[in-house]
Amino acid sequence: YDEVAAQGEVVRKLKAEKSPKAKINEAVECLLSLKAQYKEKTGKEYIPGQPP
């Protein structure tokens, strides 16, 4: 859960800094992968601010 939240912060920071699109896309792919792992382990969708 904490990893997903941390990666979400990374994506937000990159977007706020107007980073190159390729770098943002890479961070988003990582975030989506973490969300998929979270769902696989818990059986639930990741919802920000609602730990399992």
Rank of each mutant, 00 (worst) to 15 (best):
Y1V: 11
Y1H: 01
Y1I: 14
E3D: 15
E3H: 05
A5I: 04
A5G: 01
Q7N: 01
E9W: 05
E9S: 12
E9R: 13
E9C: 15
E9N: 11
E9H: 08
E9F: 02
V10R: 13
V10N: 04
V10A: 15
V11E: 04
V11D: 01
V11H: 01
R12G: 09
R12K: 12
R12A: 11
K13Q: 07
K13N: 04
K13H: 03
L14P: 00
L14A: 05
K15E: 12
K15D: 06
K15H: 06
K15S: 04
A16Q: 13
A16L: 13
E17F: 02
E17T: 15
E17V: 07
K18D: 09
K18A: 08
K18N: 12
P20K: 09
P20Q: 06
P20T: 13
P20V: 11
K21S: 11
K21E: 12
K21N: 09
K21R: 13
K21T: 12
K21D: 11
A22H: 04
I24N: 03
I24D: 07
I24K: 04
N25H: 08
N25I: 11
N25D: 14
N25Y: 06
E26W: 01
A27W: 00
A27F: 00
A27V: 00
A27E: 07
A27P: 03
V28W: 05
V28M: 14
E29N: 14
E29P: 01
E29S: 09
C30D: 10
C30Y: 12
C30M: 15
C30F: 13
C30S: 13
L31F: 15
L32M: 14
S33L: 11
S33E: 14
L34D: 09
L34H: 06
K35D: 03
K35V: 03
K35N: 01
K35T: 02
A36F: 04
A36S: 12
Q37G: 08
Q37H: 05
Q37V: 05
Q37A: 14
Q37T: 05
Q37E: 13
Y38W: 02
Y38T: 02
Y38V: 04
K39W: 02
K39N: 08
K39R: 10
K39A: 09
E40Y: 05
E40R: 06
K41A: 12
K41L: 09
K41R: 12
T42M: 12
T42R: 04
T42P: 01
G43D: 08
G43V: 01
K44E: 04
K44N: 15
E45F: 01
E45Y: 04
Y46C: 04
Y46V: 05
I47T: 12
I47K: 11
I47L: 11
I47Y: 07
P48C: 05
P48Y: 06
P48L: 08
G49F: 10
G49D: 13
G49S: 11
G49K: 14
Q50S: 12
Q50H: 13
Q50F: 13
Q50W: 04
Q50K: 13
Q50G: 11
Q50A: 11
P51Y: 01
P52T: 15
